[in-house]
Computed example of a mutant assay.
Amino acid sequence: MTTSRPGRATLATIAQAAGVSIATVSKVVNGRDDVSPGTRAMVEELLRRHYYTGRGGTRQPTVEVVFAGPLAAYSNEVLEGVLRAAAEPPGVAVMLSKGRTGIDTGAGAPVTPTSWALGVAKAGRSAVISVSNEMTVEDATALAGANVPLVVIDPLTPAGADVTSVGATNYAGGISAAEHLLSLGHTRVAYLGGDLEAGCNQARWQGFRSTLETAGHPVRDDLVLHETFRYAAGVAAGGALLDRQHPPTAVFAGSDEIAVGLIEACRRRGVRVPEDLSVVGFDDTQLAEFCSPPLTVVRQPLREMGRVALRTALRLAAGASVDSHHVELATSLVVRASTAAPRQR
């Protein structure tokens, strides 16, 4: 005995089952509002029952989210925001990749910005969102040539003046960190930042530096280090700061991961936080609440940044314009237990 799989449902299949015209089913599929509620409900139920997917499968838009390196606390928060926005009606499919991976550019062919962009377009991606990735001008140009919109979140390097980006008020965040430490009485402070060329890192450092200089307490050159935004950098570079002949009484770290790594360096040396050293992080990921002591941070709305990036990408994919090529969401200071007045020595 042989069995055969039923053929893919068509508009005609659904129309016959519903006892309506093909035109009516087409209106329901395309979201037209000139169909009575009762007929619409019946047709939609039959579409689900027959697993109707249309001629080319789902018409759901698909966005490629590109990360650099391993996912971390920061990128997980951004991704959560993207996914939450993608789940909102009418729904968006999200594909994840690291750099120029996950797209077929041809067997054995070298991956270039052009071949990657063409692969993205052929894969049916509606847009690309880059998260703290080294998206180059060549990448952005190639995507534009392939008619694939690009939105960059916290670009490490500028991808071109016309590229739409989403970030936070990093300069203002640096100011608020400095003002908080000054209000506690700290004057010998350090900055332990991320990648030197990263625009967000430079903005945080410049806001922090300028505020302390204006207050008459410039940061000493030997108390400024730019590494990466990772935990390991906080452990190693943080240890170097602590081992100085005249260590700081407070450190502003360029990310939560750096700050938590610095706290670990303190633990290994018997330095107490905040009694011996105050620490301020930047991001306000789950790490900030889970570490001991809970971390004072400059909070940037990472999930909202992901949501705004997705909605902006969809607007560009639909051919709509955006009010600005760069959107900055406000940062805010969240005071927890990792900062206190300096101990008198």
Rank of each mutant, 00 (worst) to 15 (best):
A215G: 04
L295H: 03
G31K: 09
L277D: 03
V128M: 06
T2C: 13
H325M: 10
V29L: 06
V260M: 06
E289S: 07
G69N: 02
R307I: 10
T53Q: 07
E77G: 07
K122M: 05
V298F: 01
A23K: 13
V43F: 04
H217C: 07
R311F: 13
A117Q: 06
S255K: 03
R209H: 12
L150D: 02
R48V: 13
Y231S: 03
L83V: 13
V166R: 07
A161H: 15
V63A: 11
R55P: 13
F252Y: 06
P113K: 10
N133A: 14
A232S: 13
R336A: 10
G7P: 10
A172L: 07
L79G: 05
T58N: 14
A288P: 00
T187A: 04
P218C: 00
G54T: 10
E328F: 15
A73E: 11
I22M: 06
E197G: 10
L181G: 15
A259F: 00
M305N: 04
G56Y: 07
P113C: 12
E138L: 11
V308E: 12
C266D: 06
Q16N: 09
T112G: 04
E77D: 07
L316Y: 15
S183I: 04
T13P: 05
F208W: 09
R49E: 06
E64H: 10
E77V: 15
A265F: 03
P70R: 05
V334W: 06
T105Q: 02
A18D: 07
P342R: 14
L96A: 15
T114E: 05
A177E: 09
G106H: 05
A93E: 12
T296M: 13
R345H: 12
D284H: 14
I129K: 09
T141F: 15
A146Y: 00
R345E: 10
S183R: 02
R299I: 03
L47V: 02
L182E: 02
D154T: 02
E264D: 08
L118M: 05
V137C: 15
G91A: 13
L242D: 01
L192D: 00
D139Q: 12
T157N: 03
M305H: 04
L143H: 00
A253R: 11
R32E: 08
S21R: 10
R303K: 09
P70N: 04
E134P: 14
G145T: 14
V260A: 07
G234W: 01
G306Y: 01
V111K: 01
V148Q: 12
G207F: 01
L333T: 07
S115Y: 06
D256R: 00
G160L: 08
H326A: 14
D323F: 10
P158V: 00
